[in-house]
Amino acid sequence: MISVYTYAGSRSLRVVWALEELGLDYQCHALRLDKGEGQTPEHLARHPDGKVPVLVDGDVTVFESGAICRYLVAKYGKDGQLMPSDPEGQAQLDQWLFFVLTELEQPLWTQAKHAFALPDEQKVASVIPTAAWEYKRALGALERRFDGTGWLVGDAFSLADIFLVQTLGWAEKARHPVPEQFKDYLARCTARPAWARAIAREEEAAAEVAS
């Protein structure tokens, strides 16, 4: 049985969404990271920095959301499900996964860290405007290649869309404007049944450990 370790609303949602899209059976284990559960010896054996997501599939343990999702699709995906089957298409997928993770998401996370996530003595408020500028620049690069019609890679919904949708959702929550041409794209992606199931699964797991 596949096990995934999560924290509701974090990057773990991407993994749960991918699991739901693939129709796999899995156990969802919520960790109360705010209570220090990520730093237990048991979890540090899964993830060296005590974070989520972590996937355990038999003897295989994988951390980092991009690596986990690529592993799941490579092992369990069928007929180009969530990832093109040809090397050229896979390269395009990886190109956008890396772009979202390193260029689009990172300035958002930098702002969040210096606004509320880091210890007070480590916060540097002057970093936040620079991070906002970096996000705007990365968004402009995205717009030059993707206008919100169709899908980010090829002619089918893929992991690239999962990662982009969650990241743009974070941008909206941080009060960054999302270009109008992406509104319909976001609505189409979040209307997928697997999206709602993934959110519900994480929330249910979190509720179980909170009770």
Rank of each mutant, 00 (worst) to 15 (best):
Ser3Gln: 14
Ala206Met: 12
Pro179Met: 10
Thr102Arg: 11
Gly9Pro: 02
Ile2Asn: 02
Pro129Phe: 09
Leu93His: 07
Asp86Val: 03
Gln81Asp: 13
Asp57Tyr: 00
Thr149Leu: 05
Lys123His: 00
Leu104Ile: 03
Leu22Lys: 11
Glu20His: 08
Lys35Glu: 12
Asp147Ser: 12
Val62Gln: 00
Ala187Trp: 04
Gly169Gln: 08
Pro179Ser: 15
Ala210Tyr: 07
Ala117Met: 15
Leu31Thr: 10
Gln81Met: 12
Val16Ala: 11
Ile199Arg: 12
Tyr5Ala: 03
Tyr71Ala: 06
Trp133Cys: 00
Phe98Pro: 02
Leu24His: 11
Glu88Asn: 13
Tyr185His: 04
Arg197Leu: 09
His176Gly: 05
Phe99Met: 06
Leu82Val: 06
Gly150Cys: 03
Gly58Trp: 04
Leu93Arg: 02
Gly77Glu: 00
Thr130Ala: 11
Val209Leu: 06
Arg46Gly: 01
Ala210Asp: 15
Gly38Ala: 07
Val56Phe: 04
Glu88Arg: 12
Thr40Asn: 06
Ala8Arg: 14
Asp34Trp: 01
His43Asn: 02
Glu64Asp: 14
Ala125Phe: 05
Tyr76Ser: 10
Val16Phe: 02
Arg145Phe: 02
Val73Leu: 03
Val52Trp: 08
Ser158Gln: 05
Ala207Thr: 13
Ala206Trp: 13
Val127Pro: 00
Arg11Trp: 00
Val127Arg: 13
Leu93Ile: 12
Gln92Ser: 04
Val62Met: 05
Asp34Thr: 09
Asp25Asn: 08
Val60Lys: 10
Lys123Phe: 03
Ala156Arg: 15
Ala45Ser: 12
Ser65Tyr: 00
Gly77Gln: 02
Arg144Trp: 02
Ser85Gly: 13
Phe98Ile: 10
Leu72Ala: 12
Asp94Ser: 08
Glu172Ser: 15
Pro48Glu: 01
Gly50Asn: 11
Glu103Gln: 14
Cys189Lys: 02
Leu168Glu: 03
Thr167Cys: 14
Ala200Ser: 10
Leu33Lys: 11
Pro193His: 09
Leu55Glu: 07
Ile199Lys: 15
Glu202Arg: 04
Met1His: 06
Gly66Leu: 09
Ala67Phe: 03
Gly80Tyr: 11
Asp49Lys: 01
Leu13Thr: 09
Lys35Gly: 08
Ala125Lys: 13
Trp133Leu: 10
Glu208His: 07
Leu93Ser: 11
Asp34Ala: 14
Phe157Cys: 04
Asp59Asn: 12
Leu168Gln: 01
Glu202Ile: 03
Leu104Asn: 09
Gly9Phe: 10
Val60Gln: 12
Glu121Gln: 13
Lys113Asn: 14
Ser211Asp: 15
Glu172Gln: 13
Ala191Gln: 13
Tyr76Thr: 06
Glu21Ala: 08
Asp120Lys: 15
Leu139Cys: 09
Leu139Asn: 07
